[in-house]
Computed example of a mutant assay.
Amino acid sequence: MTMAAPPTGNGGEARSVLLCLSHLRWDFVFQRPQHLMTRAAQDHEVIFFEEPREEPIAAARLDLSPQPGGVLRAVPVLPHGLSVAESFAAQRALLDGLLAERAGRRLVAWFYTPMALVFADHIKADVTVYDCMDELSAFRGAPPAMLEMERRLLERADLVFTGGRSLYEAKRDRHPRVHCFPSSIDTAHFGRARGAVAEPASLAGIPHPRIGFFGVVDERMDLELVAAFAALRPDWQLVMLGPVVKIDAASLPQAPNLHWLGGRSYDELPEYLAHWDMGFMPFALNESTRFISPTKTPEFLAAGLPVISTPVVDVVRDYGEAGLVEIVESAAELAEQADALLARPRAPFLARVDLQLAKNSWDLTWARMAALLRVPERAGAGAVPATAMASGVANV
């Protein structure tokens, strides 16, 4: 069989390969990996290698599917019943076959999970990146080996990026080239919510005022806070968008003004936000939220919505102290702030929001990352000052 010619750049040279090893599925929730990889695909052949799924098959295979934005999605499909060692061996063999077809081209290995080293530690990459978007070891169900695997990944990485200031502060003394890239924003996409957008059918019949949440519903959500606010303000409607993961759906509080609508696509989100009166982020304060920098914060703001959040450290420092997000610690405070924000004039608030968001975009974040990828040997803290990068949304 004749092999296809490798994709080339504008100068005719073979494009470099960016292998992204992710614990998240491409079609789960459109977030940091998807934003960055679709932009990386403009200059690299991007392969998004996911965690495996199992099927009743005799031999392992790799399902490849091009995605909008130019990313090649790679899903290992393994036979049922493999041992842990057999599973890792199968993933390694599938990965080796994929990379063999691209031998001789510059390779960037981009890790979102340290656990991928179990089957990818032999890869000889020109540049290795650890994009630490979460403290995965603190999440429910994290493998016991996670911390050791992260130590090994930090040893071999050329560059370490973090998804927020708290993560930066936790990693900066563990590697000489750590750079802070907090959650960014596609302002044009979410800005659609400020215009005339048709109301989704699933919102029909839900009265106003509406306060909404979108994102993954898991152990990071303070369900007691949600239930208490619903009880305190029965005239407010709580609209909750997102898949339920790692917790029992039966544990979700129920009330006439609580609407659990399930997941929605990234493209649909502006249609929902356009018909909400406020956004809220009822994060529990626990180990799994200690280092988070929620991407939805600037997304709510770009949509033109006032936002209320529990005191997640990065939200407080990057948005609360700037007066862009109201911080509350109880259902009573949440109810009081919701009433006040509903009555507050919107125009002065939006003017301050737009000034801040104009300094921040996923395009700018990727451009800065790409510059570091081109010269990793010079990409220490002196090349792009880590302290400046960590100073909040105004710089990233």
Rank of each mutant, 00 (worst) to 15 (best):
residue 4 A to F: 11
residue 6 P to E: 02
residue 7 P to I: 13
residue 17 V to P: 00
residue 19 L to M: 08
residue 19 L to N: 11
residue 26 W to E: 07
residue 29 V to N: 14
residue 31 Q to C: 13
residue 37 M to D: 08
residue 37 M to R: 07
residue 38 T to Y: 04
residue 46 V to I: 08
residue 47 I to T: 15
residue 52 P to R: 12
residue 56 P to N: 03
residue 78 L to D: 10
residue 84 V to Q: 13
residue 84 V to P: 10
residue 87 S to M: 14
residue 94 L to C: 01
residue 101 E to L: 12
residue 103 A to I: 05
residue 116 A to G: 13
residue 117 L to N: 13
residue 128 T to E: 09
residue 131 D to V: 03
residue 133 M to I: 10
residue 135 E to M: 07
residue 142 A to K: 04
residue 153 L to Y: 07
residue 157 A to M: 12
residue 164 G to D: 00
residue 172 R to F: 01
residue 173 D to R: 01
residue 174 R to H: 13
residue 178 V to C: 15
residue 181 F to C: 10
residue 189 H to P: 10
residue 191 G to N: 06
residue 194 R to T: 04
residue 199 E to W: 03
residue 203 L to V: 14
residue 211 I to P: 00
residue 212 G to E: 00
residue 214 F to P: 06
residue 214 F to K: 06
residue 214 F to L: 09
residue 218 D to F: 15
residue 219 E to R: 15
residue 221 M to Q: 11
residue 224 E to W: 00
residue 230 A to G: 07
residue 244 V to R: 04
residue 246 K to P: 10
residue 249 A to P: 10
residue 250 A to N: 06
residue 253 P to E: 01
residue 255 A to N: 04
residue 259 H to W: 03
residue 261 L to D: 07
residue 268 E to I: 01
residue 271 E to C: 10
residue 274 A to I: 04
residue 278 M to H: 04
residue 286 N to R: 01
residue 290 R to F: 04
residue 293 S to C: 14
residue 298 P to S: 05
residue 325 V to R: 04
residue 325 V to Y: 05
residue 327 I to G: 02
residue 330 S to V: 01
residue 332 A to W: 02
residue 344 R to C: 07
residue 353 V to G: 01
residue 354 D to W: 00
residue 355 L to W: 08
residue 361 S to D: 13
residue 367 A to Q: 15
residue 370 A to L: 01
residue 371 A to D: 06
residue 372 L to H: 06
residue 383 A to P: 09
residue 383 A to I: 12
residue 383 A to Q: 12
residue 387 T to C: 06
residue 388 A to T: 02
residue 391 S to Y: 03
residue 392 G to R: 05
residue 393 V to M: 02
residue 394 A to C: 10
residue 396 V to C: 15
